[in-house]
């Protein structure tokens, strides 16, 4: 047995604290910030699932969130469905697009894969911008609340639960043999195939899960902010998600999620400097990649985790 890592314990404690936070009479403003933090946490962790574990790069995570959001709202609107069913359809749509993109990019690696996902992302964003009739373009598409009378605390708990359940699913999957196959594929595809690992199946599954969780995040986000615009699919958004995962640590879905919450706080705290925030995050991300490739939390865990009895 290994002694529990103190950093892991502290991380678990933080999530526990998150559950209690609204009971402490925190201002709605900070609950709002945390709620958005949970949204980014889900995007950063689902991105890490693909990039950190399977070693496949993608720049389409923000676009997949947007896809989930638009499909959720439009399907609910046109089919007369309640928000929850719309969100489900949005999630499935994003997962399905993930399967298609995963299959189309099966043989691509590195820069080619990255460029292809940027193209996919831009196609989706431009489509959402250009299809005024359907999406109302840059004016934005209004959305009803998740349910009548839901308040800030309600949203807080919805996002937190969705995040925790999603992380739970990811962790269960990653601790199963599938997680082992993912990592074997990341390390060496031919080596994995030579041992009978169905490389194609797992690569496509990882892509689809990653985009599916992004679609889920986008769907609930739409009903939270109640007005979505194509800008949520921009490369700038993708830049934030990427920084969050890298700074938190993208070789661990929980670390990436924490990166999402932490950076969302910083985004709010540094609101005054506007666009410069992305520059700062970019610089920090580069420094982290260079000096602490496991991210802040991964490095801390390593630093304090050396003590196997």
């Amino acid at each position: 047995m290994t002694r529990p890592n103190p950093v892991t314990l502290i991380i678990a404690l933080c999530f526990l604290l998150c559950l209690l936070l609204p009971l402490g009479g925190i201002a709605d403003y900070w609950l709002y910030t945390m709620t958005i933090g949970f949204y980014y946490a889900l995007l950063a962790s689902s991105w890490s699932l693909l990039v950190g574990y399977v070693g496949r790069i993608s720049f389409a995570q923000a676009a997949m969130s947007g896809l989930g959001a638009y499909v959720a709202l439009l399907s609910a609107q046109y089919l007369g469905l309640p928000p929850l069913q719309g969100i489900l359809i949005g999630t499935l749509a994003a997962g399905l697009v993930g399967i298609v993109v995963g299959l189309l990019t099966l043989r691509l690696h590195g820069a080619y894969l990255g460029l292809t996902t940027i193209a996919v992302s831009e196609i989706l964003r431009i489509t959402a911008t250009a299809e005024h009739q359907l999406t109302q373009g840059t004016r934005g598409l209004p959305a009803p609340p998740l349910w009548q009378g839901i308040g800030q605390t309600g949203y807080y708990y919805v996002f937190l639960s969705v995040l925790l359940v999603s992380l739970g699913i990811m962790i269960l999957l990653l601790r199963s043999r599938v997680g082992l196959f993912f990592q074997a594929i990341r390390e060496d595809e031919d080596g994995a195939a030579s041992l009978g690992v169905r490389v194609t199946l797992w690569k496509v599954l990882a892509f689809s899960l990653s985009t599916g969780f992004a679609g889920l995040a986008g769907g609930i986000y739409a009903h939270f902010i109640q007005l979505i615009a194509p800008s949520m699919m921009s490369m700038q958004e993708m830049g934030y998600i990427l920084s969050m995962a890298v700074i938190g640590g993208f070789s661990n879905v929980v670390h990436a999620a924490l990166g999402g919450i932490l950076l969302q706080w910083l985004l709010e705290a540094l609101r005054e400097i506007g666009e410069w925030r992305l520059v700062i995050f970019g610089v920090i991300a580069i420094l982290v990649l260079r000096f602490a490739p496991n991210g802040i939390f991964g490095s801390l865990e390593k630093r304090f985790g050396r003590g196997r009895p």
Partner: peptide, 16 residues
């Protein structure tokens, strides 16, 4: 598989 443990390397094929 460099970032996997020696044991995990062994398990990949068996579990597949």
């Amino acid at each position: 598989f460099k970032r996997l443990s020696v044991l995990e390397n062994m398990l990949v094929g068996a579990l597949a």
